[in-house]
Design a protein around this nucleic acid. Structure first.
Lengths: 197, 197
DNA sequence: GCCAATACTATACGATCATTCAGCAAGGAT
DNA sequence: ATCCTTGCTGAATGATCGTATAGTATTGGC
């Protein structure tokens, strides 16, 4: 009767299991910061044994970098599919939508920021994503620039806007009531108004 | 011959020892982030035994809150002693001076941000300091406001400026070359120009 | 129905974590 | 010169950390 009992565990495709572990790790970061990002807690929450993280990600640093990429992809507005003159508004709307602009999600971001300087794989991932982000925002701004030569200003303006957004996110994370989404959106609007038509 | 050997340790006043431990802990945060913030590393670097942190701070959370207060006091420009119409410029100059706007110092800030959500004592300390900070910056802005009724706008403008500053600091910390001090200062100038006389 | 590839388990390992606590010792007060 | 306050030591505790590894079990392809 070797087939009488159910399988002790289920095999997933490598891709699916990686996704599951990233989601569980992300939920931990959102809930309790970097203290929750441990082999024990993640594997227990995912219902798998301790060896699986190493098997799929090589190290905890590898998982952390993968989580960063996943969080970026899930919460950063995708502008590529939109007409260029609609992108800037979509960026602002998407950034401060409840899906992205909430305490838990931002908690995960802040926790990741704190690890970038000390986790080589994560730093690489961040620089790659950040460069693409600046490109996207620059293009969105340039498309709405009032002056023809405004394209020259789009890049520094994009960087400053990104910094403002990051700061607003940080503030909301540390004290949500002190920086609600509407206030944050208004701050971005006031920042951009003088530079656009 | 009980007096032949030198004292095994030197006693400090409680205040001096606390200051030393805060400095050592801060240096660790600046160098290696929150991973360096452990009893063993701090006490070994300070040349004291492991029991001393509990003796002076009650817990690691207590030390972390004290370190936050110390970092704030050491790197945030003190505006109170200046005439009101000189405070805003002093804020910008001081914020982006090498003493405050450098990778190590900002690394400590980012590491602390990552702990605020999960360390009650640190969160209290942050909210207290942040409230005072908003007051100071609001007053500095109001003093230069072009319109008489501009005082009504000073508070949200101050909050937005603080967010921009935080974002610029974060960016410099994660990739110093991508956000030099001059660029950061210019971004603040561009942000404020439309609102001031 | 068997085989081979590999997802997965489970334990062991050495290091490190924060906190506790009983008592030593330094140095100003008397 | 002795006392007393208290800064300080250092070992013990029990939990938890990331990584390594030997081997089991599942599942798709044959």
């Amino acid at each position: 009767m070797p087939r009488a009992s159910a399988p002790r565990f289920t095999r997933m495709t490598s891709e699916d299991r990686r996704a599951q572990l990233m989601d569980v790790a992300l939920a931990g970061l959102a809930r309790g910061g970097i203290q929750e990002f441990t082999v024990d807690r993640i594997c227990q929450a995912a219902g798998v044994s301790r060896g699986l993280i190493l098997h799929h990600f090589g190290s905890m640093g590898g998982l952390l970098a993968a989580v960063y990429a996943r969080l970026y992809r899930e919460t950063t507005p995708n502008l590529a599919s939109l007409p260029t003159n609609a992108r800037l508004e979509a960026l602002i709307e998407g950034t401060f939508a409840p899906k992205a602009f909430n305490r838990d999600t931002l908690n995960a971001w802040v926790a990741l920021w704190g690890q970038i300087a000390n986790t080589p794989k994560l730093r690489e991932e961040h620089r790659r994503q950040y460069a693409a982000y600046v490109e996207d925002v620059s293009a969105a701004i340039a498309a709405l620039s009032s002056t023809p030569g405004g394209a020259l200003e789009a890049r520094p303006l994009a960087k400053a806007l990104i910094c403002l957004i990051d700061g607003l996110c940080l503030q909301h994370c540390l004290d949500p009531a002190a920086m609600p989404a509407e206030t944050a959106k208004a701050a971005c609007g006031a920042f951009l108004a003088p530079h656009l038509g």
